[in-house]
Design a protein around this nucleic acid. Structure first.
Lengths: 355, 355
DNA sequence: CCCGGCGCTGACAACGTTGTCCAGGGGCTA
DNA sequence: TAGCCCCTGGACAACGTTGTCAGCGCCGGG
């Protein structure tokens, strides 16, 4: 790490915080009343062009910028919404956050977001901090299962929309992807290609989507009249280590699974690695993952996935939020967005002949 | 999209905004003075346990939550920082944003972020909106080249750190990756493997990192005494269409390039696709990309890259920002973080024998 | 017994803005 | 020329919080 200090020695005169010019200062300098400055700043009518010019000059001369804190206090609306999600660094949430931001921007609002790191306490802490800031609304991808702490806030008028997972113990709007249906499709797809021993590698069963995907897996299996062996299902944290162990166990069992269904993108990627590292079997293992990911099509074989559009999820939630803010009433709604099966090869591999 | 309304008809009584209880209400209900409530809320000493209990009861009974807008106005500090970047949905920026958030959190601050969409006007608009909110500091990945509009804000005490690209026409802290050195390494690596005709596919030359990478390319070529043909360099928007055309032209030329250096991760991915779609040449084209990306190692061959740690970039910038906020003075600093060459196969492919 | 001091509490102003309301002046009409 | 209205500008309160300061009991020491 190198450190270069530019040659110029011009130091900006560091006025301290709070020493910023206020409308009062601008008014004094322009020789007008306080309210006139306010009018100019907000583009309100009723100011002579000449007066306006004087005020504008004073503003630029002093480097005045309206203090939105005061404005917010006075007006009661912050024109900002909060987004609480698990981890911004996750490629699933980046587009979601961006989509929410775009909708907010269209409504003239800023977005404040926070990562809960899948920790319910941290989620609550963040949400309440946002409420204290008086955000107009909240979009929450919940980490916890009990959101009763939100009841006073919602009663006080903070619009709230849950995304990806429903709220716990409180009635609220929610926008979800069809985890159950998508999983059912995925597993049915594998079954249609001849598989009978299918493994499921999922997230912690406490997470709503993980539970739904498990349910979809079971539904598809039982619909096809197939039994599910305990050893074919592994739920838990999705760190590579655990997934690696679980997948290896399924593949090395006496009666190994011939296909794998990965419960989310992190799991899928780990499984791809595991399969790539194993000595190539006579017949490759089929794989289908929940969540699409970049480059899935460039691997060989391409990885078949159940795609959900996270940006669409965010957009839908934000739209609903602003409709609520615009006064839309009615009971809490639950919107479920469809998923889409994208076959790319890995999910269409047939099982060994003597399956 | 299905829409299910839950059966319960319990409507929460929607108090309107501004109808939230204030400390005054709490004080009245608890039969104490306003300031005593403030003391309890802020955990200040000097309150009898009995009084405190009464106040706490009133708080929960009324569902009171401190209004931070008022607090901010009074105290002058917002305990929030702004992050302006190009696109939160880009996998390069997600980890960066998350890293900044973590540092902010450690300092008790919230993070407000906005996407400039690589549009200078939108960048300015966002930055000034954040300044109006009186964020304590700003982390900016600049889209524009003229940041003089920030001068009054910086003079007023808004700490500002630029990331990934330096500020334009204003003295400010900056944290950069070593684009020049990294590119030099990349091209030298290709040369070391025998290549002499190397193509460079870069971003718009107006973008600082793109210009630096081009400079590194030229430096490595000239250091090796190799000429650079105009047709080997293509700069412009990094949309797949343009990159595809440019790459194809270089590969189909009379004297085709035998290796490609891709100027960023988007370009690299597009090039990988292009190469995958072409009829396999007798000798595969070597490729090295700037920026690492997930799954680069799982492609065949694995894609060699110049890796820069975007999270580290964010962390470093945020650290510097908070050091400034804690009063660290001195001239603006420019920190340059090193890059790292990760060979994975695609960059080590030799050129055709008769090169 | 009185007084100083301490522990607790509350009244009040201030933060910077916006909404309300009123005043003054100029132009237009009768 | 008088009267009226509109147009412009300003004084003032309020938003909800925190910092300052003063008051009120009560206790212990002189």
């Amino acid at each position: 790490m190198t450190d270069t200090a530019p040659g110029t020695a011009s130091r900006t005169p560091t006025r301290r915080y709070g020493t910023r010019p206020t409308m009062k200062d601008v008014a004094a300098r322009a020789g007008v009343g306080l309210k006139t400055v306010s009018r100019v700043v907000n583009g309100e009518p009723g100011v002579t062009p000449d007066t306006e010019r004087r005020v504008q000059e004073a503003i630029t001369a002093l480097g005045f910028r309206r203090n939105d804190s005061a404005r917010i206090l006075r007006k009661g609306r912050t024109a900002s919404i909060g987004l609480v999600l698990e981890d911004l660094a996750d490629p699933f949430y980046g587009p979601l956050s961006r989509a929410v931001e775009e909708v907010a921007r269209a409504h003239g609002a800023l977005l404040i977001n926070g990562s809960s790191a899948e920790d319910p306490e941290r989620e609550q802490e963040l949400v309440l901090a946002l409420c204290a800031r008086r955000v107009d609304g909240l979009v929450i991808i919940p980490a916890g299962h009990d959101h009763r702490y939100l009841a006073p806030e919602m009663a006080a008028g903070v619009a709230t929309v849950f995304v990806d997972r429903p709220a716990g113990r409180v009635e609220a709007d929610a926008v979800l992807a069809d985890s159950f249906g998508g999983s059912q499709d995925a597993v049915a797809h594998l079954i249609a290609h001849g598989h009978r021993r299918i493994g499921f590698l999922g997230d912690l069963p406490g997470i709503h989507t993980a539970a739904e995907r498990l349910r979809g897996y079971h539904a598809a299996m039982s619909e096809a009249g197939l039994p599910v062996h305990d050893a074919w299902v592994s739920l838990g944290p999705t760190d590579p280590e655990r997934v690696r162990t679980a997948a290896t166990a399924m593949l090395d069992a006496a009666e190994p699974v011939t296909a794998l269904f990965a419960g989310n993108n992190r799991v899928t990627v780990t499984v791809v690695r595991v399969l790539a590292e194993r000595p190539a079997p006579a017949v490759p293992v089929a794989l289908i993952g929940f969540d699409d990911f970049e480059l899935a099509d460039l691997l060989s074989p391409g990885i078949s996935v159940i795609a959900q559009d996270s940006a669409q999820l965010g957009r839908t939630a934000a739209d609903l939020l602003f409709r609520r803010l615009d006064g839309a009433g009615g009971d809490p709604r639950r919107l479920v967005l469809p998923t889409r099966l994208i076959p790319r090869g890995s999910g269409e591999l047939p099982p060994p002949a003597a399956s």
